[in-house]
Amino acid sequence: MTTSGRMELVCPAGTPSALRAAVQAGADSIYCGFRDETNARNFPGLNFSPQELAEGIRFAHAHGSKVLVAINTFARAGDTDPWRHAADTAAACGADAVIAADIAVLDHMATQHPGTRLHLSVQAAAATPESIGFYADAFNVRRVVLPRVLSVQEIAALNRLIKVETEAFVFGGLCVMIEGRCYLSSYAAGRSPNLNGVCSPPEMVSYDEDREGTAARLAGFTIDRYAPGEPAGYPTLCKGRFKAGDKAGYLFEDPVSLNAGSMIVAFKAAGVTALKIEGRQRGKGYVTEVVRAFRKAVDAAEQGHDATEIDNILAGLSEGGRQTTGAYRKIWR
């Protein structure tokens, strides 16, 4: 579906204070999840209780923003009730949409809460007109969060062939694997995004010092090594350094984060409805800064400013790490 309206800025909140920060910084929508394994950012101390969600939705609505609730892991066999309850609670709290990936959750929403908007999570990895069409027909899904493997040209072509809205990631952490179809984490450490809402789980992380510096390990597997004093990183599996053939290095992805801010105008031309910022595990300082900058950038794009001017607005956003436009430019592949 190619939309011509104002692009929606969808922003992350891992805590109620981050939700308030995002609303105040100009988010059109905030996405968040419950403090359990029903959402794909199930980290200790993060996310919302049902009461916090209800309060957060009231706060957002009072300020003209929407709240999208992510129930985007896969329900556990023989114990699907927590996922159904999460869906029921989100609907009861007045969520503006539920973001889901599991057919069990989508089916429950479509049959029990037909009045609540349904968005297809990136974890469903729906990238073709046939796949998206299936979810639209079977569950009345209204928007699909696009897998981060499509180029902007492919998104434009896709939008001409589908009847639902599209949402594209513009900023934040970058999964190099197709999300929802990656079991690297459970292979090494026993817990995974699909099963537990966690990738490279913190309880399996260790930083071990030896003569050569620090080894960042996940469940005993060395994911990266740092010389003494060298900035360390969290040992996310696909961002580590490994050996293959006669080479050693970042085999899967360099330690970069996504910044497709320069492509906002192209996204609009491609018919994208909503732009998504990643980072529910990030603090409110990050949320405020990034949302504020993207608010300005999206408004500038809507007013017809060109990519260079938008680049200038977003120039201060780098956190010191390197950035990439990811798959949106074909060269990434």
Partner: peptide, 29 residues
């Protein structure tokens, strides 16, 4: 930002990483 300070070695953290993450998120809110 605790993450940034940690990754730039301005602070050092050792022990149970999941407890640190929980503390950091609780403080964050």
């Amino acid at each position: 930002d605790g993450d940034a300070l940690f990754f730039h070695r301005a602070i050092s953290v050792s022990g149970r990483t999941e407890a640190v993450v929980a503390l950091r998120n609780a403080i964050e809110d």
